[in-house]
């Protein structure tokens, strides 16, 4: 019974991981591509880690919880890196299927200016 449950978790995790990467390879513009890895992959790896917690807890007769740490870390960092990537893409004004919002021209302006200078 438990083995069945762990197998089911492993399969769901792997399928979600695969769908996340499929989205990365398949979708058309950067802003839609970013959705695949940040969500599907997080839940995919999350359920793999839950499966491994269960496996090690029942096979080694001692509670194994340090997978929780990896899960927690991934759930905290995945949105942050997605946000940073999206911000960088908006800064570079990558083409998008949706209408791009007008770029901001307030307090980050000096920094943007200086970074442009360094690029040129």
């Amino acid at each position: 019974m438990l083995e069945f449950f762990i197998s089911a978790l492993i399969l769901t995790g792997a399928i979600f991981t695969f769908i996340g990467s499929l989205g990365l390879a398949r979708l058309q513009d950067f802003y839609t591509r970013i959705h695949g890895p940040t969500k599907a992959t997080t839940l995919g790896v999350g359920s793999l880690l839950v499966a491994s917690t269960l496996y090690f807890t029942f096979h080694e007769d001692s509670i194994s919880l340090h997978e929780v740490l990896v899960t927690l870390f991934l759930f905290i960092t995945a949105p942050v890196s997605a946000h940073m990537l999206c911000k960088a893409a908006l800064h570079l004004e990558l083409p998008s299927l949706a209408k791009l919002p007008e770029s901001q021209t307030n307090s980050t302006a000096p920094q943007r200016q200086s970074s442009k200078d360094q690029h040129d």
Binding site: G13, A14, G36, V45
Partner: peptide, 20 residues
Amino acid sequence: PDRILALDTLYINTIALLVL
């Protein structure tokens, strides 16, 4: 940014591989 995103996904996939 596409390449960075791909690299990020690659890290997460590697974690999945290691767990398995």
